[in-house]
Design a protein around this nucleic acid. Structure first.
Length: 1034
RNA sequence: GCCUUGGUGGCGGAAUUGGUAGACGCGCUGGAUUCAAAAUCCAGUUCUUUCGGGAGUGUGGGUUCGAUUCCCACCCAAGGUACCA
């Protein structure tokens, strides 16, 4: 017996098997120890070669969440890693860094709940992330790691903030300039000649006025020009999170994180003047190779529209300006007109009323005493409705007449001024000229309130709906615009308006300035203190970083200040250049520091440049480093960052370019959005029963939870009744109750609902492991209705811990190896597509790796064996067969093309075909197997390194030159032609490859199968495409 | 509504300029090996069929000798966006 066991054991000596666990651990250790993937600095003094071509491959760095990685996370990293490794084989100096976007809300909320400092949570999570990432065998250059929450890193985030504060945007030169240049102009000539991106309410002043302003007044004016500025503005306030949110952090009117309601609130906040860059952000899209959907969503977000601004004079009898708010501020000039923005100045003669947003500042001034009550009531009722309600309910038409009239710029007719909540305060000027015949919303409003709808279109019926087809527009009833098509009419209308000084051509953008303050703890502190006048002042650059203070509570203070308000040492001593106790604040030399922190996107907006020189404490990066690395060659990440990170980063990059620090004004040449890997959640259906009865004169409520079938659920959902299976079970339970002495048994309440089951309890054929499932705490109290194997229902949805459908990469690595995981993630489908994860499929790629291993292990006991060629390599062996060479070279060609096209799924299948063919050919030749190892290496680097070493190499395979494709091996002497009849392939015929058209035709026609197909008919036509196909028509 | 992407076997997917539809893998079926299982290997696997063939890439048209691929209309799904004037 013992003998037998030993004999069998000996037959498959473990050493000869593909022992992926041992191999992968060995090479991961080797890479770490040898710093194999360290990108070399261009500096020759550090052994670098500034002439070696660079290639910068970047992943979107992760937020280290407590849940760890699931198999969906590494997808993009694997793709970028393959590309990075491929570029190393091509001889590039590749930089492939990784880091952590480690400021953020989850760590802070955990801190609020547990009191644990977010830095500790973050550190723990990062450690776990790193362990998980290391197991997958990425070629990251960890010596360049950055963490956004590290003071040595956020020093430079604060630095950029200061630079933005000290800059303004000159529209004439179309770039950011130093704020000092602006001050110089103000001193000499005031601001009338300045063409700058600035606040709308910036007043004009002369040089002498400027000089007479107080310092505070000057500072206030400069804030209107700075690229980051403090201003009171309407912000999205999320009471549940206790913080403001940017537009891109709100989804469907609720917060992206947590789904809490958001309301509008006026607050003084830091903002970024991204709107100054709107046009350049739009133009830059043309120059970069990014996915079209992503470019489109940025284009929509920026929302450029061309049109005109038109001023409508307000007609007397002027409403009692003394009566409204004007009384409080007698110096304020009442506005004499209402400015609107329109994309259709050609329809100006169709204006029959005007509509203002309820929040429009002129509303209280315009409203006549008779209408005041109605208007106030309307404003109050719209203010009550949340953003979400207003969005959900776009069909209800509401509005109210203000009693006031404006004057039409051309006809001089009076135009009634209405307010309506379909006009948004936040877009354009918050007022529109309503052209009911040309705009459906205006049309509906006019119909609803019985306002006239004049038709100004030639030959168009507007009795049913508005006409908005610009292309088919011919203007009528419009004085000088009569007979003009859309484009000409627009030009003419603008020309006439400009002549009268009542309008001009204008381009409007939807893009708003980005609110940059957050009322949170775990973020970058602003390098800002407030002086005796309450004006913000920047810390000296030398004083950075301004480190986050310790607080004993991470919640807002009792007075409603942000969490930093809890810090006892959060004052700036100007003399010492140090943070000191709040008690020392005297507003002379010690000042309060800013209590807000920066938003999540602050740290991610320049990290890609910081990777170029991450240890530099003197500058964000050295000139040499950025001169060499320039920009990102390939950036891979999720499309959900389209209107957040990717837009803000482009904005900061353009600023860095304007200031001369960055050589490129776009930071990433090519970008790919990897798709999501979805999970397949599992469900059981649970019948919840509530049975009430009496026993021993006590009222008893018995709850039972029974696992029933999907069909029970379906029938319950259809008619609200339980099906036979359930009712039998219910009756059995009731009988038991009765037998046990239950009295007054009431009709039980029943509810069937789907319940998620953790996928670890389900096997590949969807059968539930009942024992393990019932042993789990989450399923306590559950009973099964039937003894038969339970088949769960499946649904594909986002992979998430809360959906119990997470697959952990560590477990896959443990069971199949990192190389299998890498190959399988790529094999699943096209990179950019979202696709469901199904672990059972991994046996396919795992089997491939075993077959690959076997190709190199053909000794009598499965030990390593490859043969050298006869013609080279010492002449001891035999040359590879022509067949094997053909297999190799077609693989080289396909794999190289696939990597260039990011078609990684097809190259995995190419490898499979190649190994299947070489196995069939019994190929053992070094001349084939050595290049094959290099081909496989970007995808399955561990096994490739192991085989490379066994082939006798002492250096890592990672820089071995990529095999060169030689077309001569693919030349064929014959071609198997598909012979089709009327486009349908019927049979194949092998013909010499160099056979001419006529000969092919003759041979095919003479063939017996052709005659069979034709059944005596004469073909009408014969198409011969040499090398491709023969098609016989007839 | 608008914009974008996509729709191919039981499943993931392939077909790069119009030229053999379903590569490769999973799953499934049968077989070999094994006391047995795992592993491995071999064969088959779009549907349909009277075994000749016929149909077939979301639907309906069109262009073409030939269409998954190009054009038109529509349907469905996913993502983005939305009283944006």
């Amino acid at each position: 017996m013992n003998k037998l066991i030993f004999a069998r054991y000996g037959k498959q000596t473990p050493k000869m098997q593909y022992d992926f666990n041992q191999i992968e651990a060995k090479w991961q250790k080797y890479w770490a120890e040898h710093q194999t993937f360290k990108a070399t600095s261009p500096d020759p003094s550090q052994g670098g070669d500034p002439l070696k071509p660079k290639f910068y491959v970047l992943d979107m760095f992760p937020y280290p969440s407590g849940a760890g990685l699931h198999v969906g996370h590494p997808l993009g990293y694997i793709a970028s890693d393959i590309y990075a490794r491929y570029k190393r084989h091509q001889g590039y100096n590749v930089m492939h860094p990784q880091g952590y976007d480690s400021f953020g809300l989850p760590a802070e909320q955990y801190a609020i709940q547990t009191g644990q400092h977010p830095a500790i949570t973050t550190e723990t999570n990062i450690k776990r992330y790193r362990e998980q990432l290391d197991k997958i065998g990425f070629s990251f250059d960890w010596s360049r790691e950055v963490r956004t929450s590290d003071p040595r890193y956020y020093k430079w985030t604060q630095w950029i903030f200061i630079q933005l504060f000290n800059s303004w945007y000159n529209k004439d030169t179309d770039r950011a300039e130093d704020i000092e240049t602006l001050v110089q102009v103000f001193e000499k000539a005031g601001n009338s000649d300045i063409n700058a991106a600035c606040d709308d309410d910036t007043p004009s002043f002369s040089a002498s006025e400027w000089q007479q302003f107080s310092t505070k007044q000057q500072q206030e004016l400069l804030l209107k020009y700075r690229l980051t500025y403090l201003a009171e503005s309407e912000v999205n306030w999320c009471p549940a999170l206790g913080t403001v949110l940017a537009n891109d952090e709100i989804v469907n009117g609720v917060s992206e994180r947590g789904g809490h309601p958001v309301v509008q609130k006026k607050m003084t906040q830091w903002s970024m003047r991204i709107s100054a860059y709107a046009q350049r952000l739009l133009d830059g899209l043309e120059t970069i190779d990014w996915p079209q959907p992503l470019k489109d969503s940025q284009t929509n977000w920026i929302g450029r529209s061309e049109g005109a601004s038109v001023t409508f004079k307000i007609l007397p009898p002027t409403p009692s300006f003394g009566g409204g708010r004007g009384e409080d501020k007698p110096n304020e000039q009442p506005t004499q007109g209402i400015e609107v923005f329109t994309t259709r100045p050609d329809t100006i003669f169709g204006v029959s009323f005007m509509t203002l947003a309820p929040e429009h500042e002129l509303v209280p001034l315009l409203t006549t005493p008779e209408q005041k009550k109605a208007v106030d009531g309307y404003i109050e009722s719209t203010a009550k409705r949340s953003e979400r309600e207003r969005m959900a309910d776009v069909k209800t038409i509401s509005g109210v007449f203000t009693g006031a009239y404006a004057e039409h710029p051309f006809t001089k007719e009076p135009i009634p001024i209405w307010i309506g909540d379909y006009v948004l305060a936040g877009y354009g000027t918050g007022a529109v000229m309503s052209v009911p015949c040309g705009d459906q919303r205006d049309y509906d409003f006019a119909k609803h309130f019985d306002i006239p709808i004049p038709n100004i279109f030639d030959g168009v019926d507007i009795s049913e709906e508005a006409f908005s087809d610009k292309e088919k527009t011919v203007i009528a009833n419009s004085d000088f615009l009569d007979g003009l098509p859309y484009k000409k009419a627009v030009k003419r209308a603008i020309f006439e308006l400009e002549k009268m000084g009542q309008g001009e051509g204008k381009i409007n953008y939807r893009l708003r300035d980005a609110v940059f303050s957050r009322q949170r703890y775990w973020g970058e502190p602003f390098p800002v203190y407030y002086d005796a006048e309450g004006m913000p002042q920047m810390l000296d650059e030398e004083c950075l970083p301004l480190e986050l203070p310790e607080v004993d509570k991470y919640l807002p203070t009792e007075t409603g200040e942000p969490p930093l308000g809890n810090a006892t040492h959060w004052a700036w001593d100007l003399k010492q250049s140090a943070v000191v106790s709040n008690q020392l604040i005297d507003h002379q030399t010690v000042f309060p520091l800013e209590l807000n922190t920066m938003p999540g996107w602050a740290g991610s907006s320049q990290y890609f440049n910081r990777y170029m020189d991450p240890q530099n404490d003197e500058a964000i990066f050295s000139k040499e480093a950025i001169a060499y690395w320039q920009d990102v060659d390939l950036y891979i990440g999720g499309s959900e960052h389209a209107t957040g990170h990717l837009l803000y980063s482009r904005f900061w990059q353009k600023f860095m370019f304007d200031k001369g620090w960055a050589p490129k004004d776009e930071f990433a040449k090519k970008l790919i959005n990897q798709g999501m890997i979805t999970g397949t959640s599992a469900f059981v259906y649970v019948l919840e029963l509530k049975i009430r009865y009496e026993r021993d004169s006590k009222h008893i409520l018995e709850n039972r939870r029974l696992v029933t079938s999907e069909s029970s659920y379906e029938s319950w959902r259809k008619d609200g009744k339980v099906d036979k299976l359930c009712s039998e079970a219910v009756n059995a339970i009731l009988k038991k109750v009765k037998d046990g002495g239950g009295k007054n048994i009431q009709e039980p309440e029943a509810l069937i609902s789907p319940n998620r089951v953790h996928i670890k309890f389900v096997d590949s054929s969807n059968i539930l492991n009942r024992k393990d499932f019932l042993d789990d705490i989450s399923s306590s109290g559950l009973e099964f209705l039937s003894e038969e194997p339970y088949v769960v229902s499946r649904e594909v949805e986002k992979m998430s811990k809360s959906k119990y459908n997470v697959v952990n990469p560590d477990e896959i690595c443990e069971q199949y190896g990192a190389d299998s995981l890498r190959l399988y993630e790529m094999f699943l489908g096209p990179l950019e597509q979202s696709k469901p994860w199904n672990t059972s499929g991994i046996t396919g790629v795992h089997g491939f790796l075993k077959k690959l291993w076997k190709l190199y292990h053909s000794g009598p006991n499965g030990e390593f064996k490859v043969t050298n060629s006869a013609s080279s390599e010492g002449g001891q062996g035999e040359d590879p067969s022509a067949e094997s060479l053909k297999t190799l070279h077609k693989t080289i060609k396909k794999v190289a093309e696939d990597i260039e096209n990011f078609s990684f799924n097809t190259s995995v299948s190419t490898f499979m075909i190649c190994v299947n063919e070489l196995t069939a050919q019994k190929c053992r030749s070094r001349a084939i197997l050595e290049p094959l190892a290099i081909l496989v290496s970007p995808y399955a680097p561990h096994i490739a390194e192991e085989l490379w070493e066994k082939l006798g190499h002492t250096e890592s395979i990672s820089t071995a030159p990529f095999p060169i494709f030689d077309a001569t091996y693919l030349v064929e002497s014959s071609k198997e032609y598909p012979i089709s009849f009327n486009g349908k392939m019927r049979f194949k015929l092998k013909l010499p490859a160099d056979m001419g058209k006529e000969d092919i035709e003759a041979t095919v026609l003479a063939h017996e199968k052709t005659q069979e197909q034709l059944q005596g008919r004469t073909p009408k036509r014969i198409i011969v495409v040499p090398g491709k196909i023969v098609n016989i028509v007839g």
